[in-house]
Amino acid sequence: MSSGSARSGIAIQRGIEIALEEINSKGGVLGRPLQLLVKDHHGNPARGADNIDDFAKIDDLVAVVGGLHTPVALYELKNIHVHKMIYLSPWAAGTPVVENGYRPNYVFRLSVRDEYAGGFLVEKALARGFKRIALALENTGWGRSNERAMKAALEAKGIRPVALSWFHWGTATAADALNDVMKSKPEAILLVANAPEGMAIVEAMAARPEHERIPILSHWGITGGTFFDAAKQAIAKTDLTFLQTYSFIDRQKESKAQHVINAYLQRYRDVKDVRSIFAPVGTAHAYDLTHLLARAIEKAGSTDRPSIRTALESLPTYHGLVRVYNPPFSDQKHDALDVGDFNLSQFAPDGAIEHLRLE
């Protein structure tokens, strides 16, 4: 809810609030209103785990909705399962967040899964004819999750990355990572970074002579902060595309999207139109997750979390904002989205996120 990726948390909060307004206007769940409580882990894993412990002390708390940071989610897993806390993930993409080894598994995700995301970005790079591909990854569980996925996808095509460079949170090592991979003369870079580090790398690329600039295909972490506002001049000088799953702009003619857009613009006065809705995947994913949770509570007939967890695994088909979930989850599948939901997107000159038409 604060620091460099704060917009991701705010976007998630807004998706939940819009869904809660709809749910509570129809009587809530089990005849009672759903309420949102907000805590801020500041991207700090230890604070995230403490927050889980604090939430577990609250009567009738039915679930926790996580945020952008895979490292925080991974650190929270033990506490989540000790407390039998339903954890809904609308953003954190690390494969082990869901494939965590816990049985029963209390984590349910409506977001990207890196096992698929790495392969998707590799596929898009190869489709553009690039063979010399370098990786620039943040040195966290999220980065390592993507390293495995990207290397596997490349090796399946008989290709190895020409360079791999790691950087830590904080911008100091991010530009160095770009300089390291550029020594291998790659044709494209696959980037896994959040907004602050991504900004440093894109600015470093833009600062190079024009003939030395190469395309960057990025994971979606860069969209979780004020990346465009801070780096728009550099973005204009670089070939930057990134992973997304949902666009209010592209889907605005659909009735459910129109409803959510109208509710968003009426409720949040800092956004003037559909093109100004920031971090749209956070809002869309959290909106659908909240409605799925409400249906699971009704199905369970109780605020008992183990019962709700079981109900989440057996929900019927749901026509959501992002897609038709048929079904959303099962006892073997706790990821609601797959690679068929992915798109490659870019920033328009006004900062709006637009899906590419020709990929």
Rank of each mutant, 00 (worst) to 15 (best):
S3V: 07
S5V: 10
I12R: 02
Q13Y: 04
G15Y: 06
E17R: 06
A19C: 07
I23L: 05
I23A: 01
S25Q: 05
G28V: 11
G28R: 02
K39D: 14
H42I: 02
G43W: 01
N44S: 15
P45S: 10
G48V: 02
A56E: 07
A56G: 09
P71M: 12
L74A: 08
E76L: 11
I86C: 10
L88F: 05
P96Y: 09
V98E: 05
V98Q: 05
N105F: 08
F108K: 02
R109Q: 13
S111F: 01
D114V: 02
Y116F: 06
G118H: 09
G118A: 13
G118S: 11
G129Y: 03
A136G: 11
M150R: 04
A152Y: 01
A153S: 14
A153G: 06
L154Q: 02
E155G: 04
K157F: 10
P161E: 10
P161T: 10
L164V: 12
G170E: 07
G170H: 10
D176G: 07
A177K: 01
K183R: 15
E187A: 10
L190R: 00
A195V: 00
A195F: 00
P196M: 13
P196Y: 07
P196A: 14
G198D: 07
I201L: 10
E212F: 11
I222C: 13
T226G: 14
F227S: 09
K232G: 11
Q233G: 15
T238P: 08
L240K: 01
T241V: 04
K253R: 14
S255W: 00
Q258F: 06
I261C: 06
Q266T: 05
D273T: 00
L289N: 01
L289Q: 08
T290P: 02
L293Q: 01
L293I: 07
R295N: 11
K299D: 12
S307H: 09
Y325G: 09
Y325C: 08
Q332W: 00
A336N: 06
D338E: 06
F342L: 09
A348V: 05
A348E: 11
E359C: 04
